[in-house]
Write a protein that binds this DNA or RNA. Structure first.
Length: 203
DNA sequence: TCGACGATCATCT
DNA sequence: GATGATCGTCGAG
């Protein structure tokens, strides 16, 4: 093993408790290989979706077939779905097979391939770095992630995660998840994890 | 800077 | 037939 930031995260990484994985994904590199070049970013925001007992989780309403089927498989695969008819969201499946849980990747800091990301976003003018991957839909569009990558193993060579640069514990904040008001009291559970932006130290 | 709103379609009732 | 793990735009303050 190299132990460097480029080392791909092993499958075992994803089999752990979903809240632990969501927290541990912060700072990791998400890498996408496209015909035009390599796109790389550092994850800064995630949300945990913890299975049938979590009213906000798709698997609390979905089934082993159809859209949510990949969530029932062993962790380490991609779960990608279309939302509001126009945006994709990228999730990492967690836990052993039969436990349908996942982590939504909500935001990241761009590191490599910024001009291609901006082209993928169809931005007329260069975006500020902080706006390029700030949101699950924007992140998917910038990294050219769509449902063609549904069920993709995340240690492969089209879309993968590697060790990257994890954030220290005190740089992470837990807050309620976004836009799940329909989920009742679960909307208040602090299952969203946000890392303080690199280069933006606190007071 | 912030809140409201419309776009648009796969999935589920 | 209803709705959503979103985004960009627009108008008000």
């Amino acid at each position: 093993m190299t132990g460097g930031p480029w080392e791909k995260l092993p499958r075992e990484f994803y089999l752990r408790d979903t809240l632990t994985v969501a927290r541990d994904l912060l700072g990791r590199w998400l890498v996408r290989r496209t015909p035009e070049g390599l796109l790389r970013c550092r994850i800064t925001e995630t949300e945990a979706y913890c299975g049938p007992s979590d009213p906000a989780c798709h698997s609390s309403r979905g089934s082993r077939e159809g859209r949510t089927s990949v969530m029932y498989r062993e962790g380490g695969l991609s779960y990608i779905y279309l939302i509001y008819g126009m945006h994709c969201c990228f999730n990492v499946v967690t836990r052993p097979a039969g436990e349908p849980e996942a982590v939504l990747i909500r935001g990241a800091q761009p590191l490599e391939g910024l001009s291609q990301m901006a082209r993928n976003r169809r931005l007329e003018e260069p975006a500020r770095e902080r706006d390029l991957l700030s949101g699950p839909g924007k992140l998917c569009q910038a990294l050219a992630i769509d449902r063609g990558l549904y069920g993709e193993p995340l240690w492969g060579d089209r879309l993968w995660l590697c060790a990257g640069e994890p954030f220290p514990e005190d740089a992470v904040t837990a807050t309620p998840r976004i836009n799940i008001d329909y989920a009742g009291e679960a909307a208040a559970w602090p299952w969203r994890f946000v890392a303080q932006r690199a280069g933006r130290p606190g007071p």
